[in-house]
Each structure stands twice: as structure tokens, then as C-alpha cells.
Computed example of a mutant assay.
Amino acid sequence: METVKLQATLRKGTGKGVARKLRREGLLPAVIYGGGRPEATPIAIKASDIKKIKHHSGLIYIDLEGEERVCILKDIQYNYLGDVPLHVDFHEVTFGEVITTTVEIEFVGTPVGVKEENGVLEIFLREVEIETLPKSIPEKLVVDISNLHAGDALHVSDIPVPEGVRILEDPETAVVVVSEQEEAPAEEESEEEASE
């Protein structure tokens, strides 16, 4: 998995005024929780670093004024349009301690039910919550859907996971379904043909 490193500074003060000033300077307010520390640490990171972390499920190494803090991304809060990041929450990890995080599902292949049986692929779940040790966080979970026929479904329990990783979602939850598409009635087809 790609190593992500960020530079951060301690953030002085809180509130909307401080946050607006940071954003004008190209920075983003953030906070680090956990790590056995009694209080959260308010920090500021470069706003441009959002690109590096928004789809990253693994460890993030934050250089906080010379002190390395190893974290995972917990949340990015956006404006009401969902296009401008406003605040980031990190959770500091303790190696050897099981953590909970979210991992993206990558689907590979085209279902035979779509290619040959006029089926339609419906995706219901694009990421899952997992429990694992920090060093075992997978970058993504790869699921091959090429053998699915029309009418087939793939559930959480069908997702292959590396050793030491446990999915926390309900095993019976549908991840993808290849729906059977109803064919148009014959008389509608003949009307179309007649109009050509």
C-alpha cells in the first residue's frame, strides 16, 4: 500500500473565524483523536493534501512539527454542496491494537449475466467497515464479479478478505445484484418495426 505522509502544524484557537483564516491561507483545520492521549490535538494541514487522503484507507504518517503521529482517516466534513472540504478528523493508532476503518471495494470483470443474458448490474455497497491491526489494513478489497449470471447476487459474506481482517457489515447484505431485465412485449416491438 502506498505510504501517505503529511506535514501539519499545531492549530491555535478554534471556531469559524480561525477556520476561515486557515482556509484563506490554503490550510484546513483538522484534529487528531486517540493514541492513548487524554485530549484531541487540533492541527492544520495543507488543503491540497485532501487529494492524497480522501480515498486512502491505510495508515497516514503525520509530521506534527517534528513529532510523527501515525493515524487513519476517520472523517472529512464538506460544505453543503459536498465539494469543499471544511474539516478533517484523524484517529491516531497504537500498533498491536485492533482498529476499525473503512475500505473501498474494487469490482473486476463484467458479469456474464450482463454480457450474455441482458442483465443489469446494480451496485449497493462500494465500501465496508473492517476490523484489523493497523499493519494489516488492505488498500482495497478486490471482488471478481465476472461469473455472476442474471438473477445472481453477491453478499458481504462472499467478499474475500486477507488474513487478520474481519468485515463488520451484516454478512447477508447484498453488495451487487445482476437484475433480470424484462423484455419488451412483442406487440410493442412490432409497432416500432411498422413505424420504421
Rank of each mutant, 00 (worst) to 15 (best):
A44F: 02
I167K: 05
P138F: 05
E193I: 14
I137L: 05
P171T: 04
G164V: 03
P138Q: 04
L27K: 15
G113F: 00
R23E: 09
H149G: 04
I43A: 08
L6Q: 07
E182M: 02
E67D: 13
G66Y: 10
S179P: 00
I137G: 06
V128M: 04
T14M: 11
E117G: 04
I72Q: 03
H56N: 04
E122A: 12
T101R: 10
K46L: 12
L27V: 03
A19C: 08
L141D: 08
I32G: 05
M1D: 12
L141C: 07
L148I: 06
L22V: 04
K54F: 11
I45L: 11
I60C: 04
I72H: 02
T100D: 12
E131A: 08
S146K: 12
E117Q: 15
V120D: 04
L27M: 15
Q77F: 01
S157E: 14
D49Q: 05
I72K: 02
L168Y: 09
R126I: 01
I145E: 09
K51A: 15
V143I: 08
A174W: 00
A150H: 08
I123P: 04
N79T: 00
E122C: 02
I32T: 06
S136K: 12
N147Q: 14
D144C: 10
L22M: 10
Y80T: 11
E116R: 14
E122S: 13
N79F: 01
H91M: 14
V143Q: 04
D144H: 03
G13Y: 02
A184H: 06
L22F: 08
I62N: 10
K16L: 07
I137P: 06
F95S: 11
N79M: 00
R23K: 07
P171G: 09
K74Q: 15
L73S: 05
E131Q: 14
E189R: 10
A8L: 01
K5H: 05
K46S: 14
E188L: 15
K5P: 03
K46I: 00
G82S: 02
G151N: 08
E163Y: 09
A186C: 00
V156A: 07
V128T: 09
D170P: 01
E169A: 15
V18L: 01
E183D: 11
I105D: 03
G17P: 02
F124Y: 15
G164N: 07
K51P: 01
I137F: 07
A30V: 10
E122H: 03
L154S: 08
D89I: 01
P85F: 08
L73I: 04
G151A: 00
T173H: 10
